[in-house]
């Protein structure tokens, strides 16, 4: 029987955000927007969902006079991402 894919991660944009954050220490909203080519509104919604799931943390601050939103993956998020990839491997290998 195939393992269940995490519904939080099994979405195109959320998966892209998690893939970026899994490979870096932190990334700000503008960087995520550029890398995912998503709209600000859609990205905000998906970031909120990942935050609510405890997969990422969001820190709002300033860089000079400009507001900045910085995202980081949590240990729970990293673990969920790892499990998601393991599940994908099982799907693909069979």
């Amino acid at each position: 029987m195939f393992p269940k894919l995490d519904p939080i991660l099994h979405s195109e944009l959320r998966l892209a955000v998690m893939s970026i954050l899994a490979g870096v220490d932190e990334a700000d909203f503008t960087y995520l927007k550029k890398q995912t080519q998503a709209t600000s509104g859609n990205l905000s919604v998906q970031i909120d969902k990942l935050t609510a799931a405890g997969y990422i943390t969001v820190e709002k601050g300033f860089k000079g006079k400009m507001p900045r939103t910085t995202c980081r993956i949590t240990p729970e998020g990293l673990e969920a991402f790892r499990k998601y990839i393991d599940a994908l491997k099982e799907y693909i290998s069979t």
Partner: peptide, 21 residues
């Protein structure tokens, strides 16, 4: 979204990240 599509997203994102760096 199929497993292959998910994997393609992860691979592409990781590659783009590396290129950016």
């Amino acid at each position: 979204m199929t497993a292959n599509e998910s994997l393609a997203i992860i691979t592409e994102t990781l590659n783009n990240n590396r290129k950016e760096i």
